[in-house]
């Protein structure tokens, strides 16, 4: 068990600045996700933490010990790769036991711990199987067992689930998290899938262009996106443009046609702002109800869990999602009224 801290990591590949000074900390035993679109530098951070890549500047500390210049094989950091990275020439037991063999653990003990680790990832009895005979999900379990059997200080997961199909992925999300809670290894998880990050993490760091865009627990990041990028990346948010206005101590966004109440956090009357609102926070209401705004429904799409209602709020495009029961009677090309609670509106100055 160990805490991890990285200070001001910078890295360029040629002219391309991949990391522009990233610092963060993971408490011992916590599960942190680095979330971001491809090319945001999240995998580079992992590779610097484990030593496969060298940072141009900055440092990596495990339990306040600087390991920036320690060779990768001496860091005791476990890693699971996107493409599993199993050793094709070895069977399952040899793969899982490789790290223990390198630590010169006695063969009896290796066998015992390998069996335990395989049991833990629900592959008990797979010792003599060839790696190539396993399915993608099974291979990733072997990789997980291999990374955990040496009891590393830190576990790094580099998009471990993105090569798996949807159903297996959901199972593995749950199992990885469960396992991590049981063992308590400090874990850094890299993903571009926001749903995966929200489901699994204690903390999420949202990265964009080599900088930290926002950091927080999943709920805060989702409901209070700090920037326009954050609001758009974590589940599509609707952006409404307008001006900030104040009436009798209440603040609003107005664009002439709509008037949406919001909690004032800065800016003065008349400022141009953009508000991010999530489609699922809207509710349908009567004309004239408090906070009601006109919504013209143009298209209804059934997505399984909910209906996606595409239309216009005033003049601006708007995507509302509503649960099946609430929306099944709505008709296309008709006018309705919707409202949203002020605490669910986040706005940014532009």
């Amino acid at each position: 068990m160990a805490g991890l801290r990285v200070n001001d990591l910078k890295k360029s590949f040629g002219d391309h600045e991949v990391l522009k000074g990233v610092s963060f900390e993971v408490e011992s035993g916590k599960f942190l996700s680095l979330l971001g679109p491809s090319g945001c530098g999240k995998s580079t951070i992992l590779r610097i933490i484990c030593g496969l890549e060298t940072a141009d500047s900055g440092e990596v500390l495990v339990d306040e010990t600087d390991i920036t210049r320690v060779r990768p094989e001496k860091r005791n950091i476990g890693m699971v790769f996107q493409n599993y990275a199993l050793f094709p020439s070895m069977n399952v037991a040899k793969n899982v036991g490789y790290g223990l063999k390198m630590q010169k653990v006695a063969q009896d003990e290796i066998n015992r711990r390998v069996s335990e680790a395989l049991e833990m990832v629900k592959l008990g009895g797979y010792e003599t199987r060839r790696v190539r005979q396993l399915s993608g999900g099974e291979q990733q379990r072997v990789a997980l067992a291999r990374a955990l059997v040496t009891r590393p200080n830190i576990l790094l997961l580099d998009e471990p689930l993105s090569a798996l199909d949807r159903k297996v992925r959901a199972e593995m999300q749950y199992e990885i998290r469960n396992l991590q809670r049981q063992i308590g290894t400090t874990t850094v998880f890299v993903t571009h899938d926001q749903e995966e990050a929200l489901t699994m993490s204690d903390q999420i760091i949202l990265l964009h262009d080599g900088n930290i865009e926002q950091q927080g627990d999943p709920h805060t990041i989702y409901s209070q996106p700090a920037t326009i990028f954050a609001s758009d990346f974590l589940g599509k948010a609707n952006l409404l443009a307008g001006k900030l206005a104040c009436e009798e101590g209440n603040w609003f966004l107005t664009d002439g046609k709509v008037k949406i109440r919001l909690n004032h956090v800065g800016g003065k009357e008349g400022d141009e702002i953009k508000a991010a609102v999530r489609g699922e926070y809207f509710e349908f209401c009567e004309e004239g109800a408090e906070g009601a705004n006109p919504f013209r429904l143009e298209k209804k799409i059934f997505t399984g869990l909910a209906w996606r209602l595409i239309g216009r709020l005033g003049n601006q495009p708007m995507d509302i999602s509503a649960l099946g029961t609430a929306a099944s009677e709505l008709e296309e090309d008709r006018d309705y009224f919707v409202r949203i609670r002020p605490e669910n509106v986040v706005y940014y100055n532009v």
């Binding site: 484990c50 094989e73 860091r75 790769f81 493409n83 990275a85 291999r146 040496t150």
Partner: peptide, 15 residues
């Protein structure tokens, strides 16, 4: 060949 198993081996302590 896939070069990542080499990285994996190094992280498991192989020189």
């Amino acid at each position: 060949m896939d070069r990542t198993p080499e990285s994996a081996a190094a992280l498991l302590g192989a020189s």
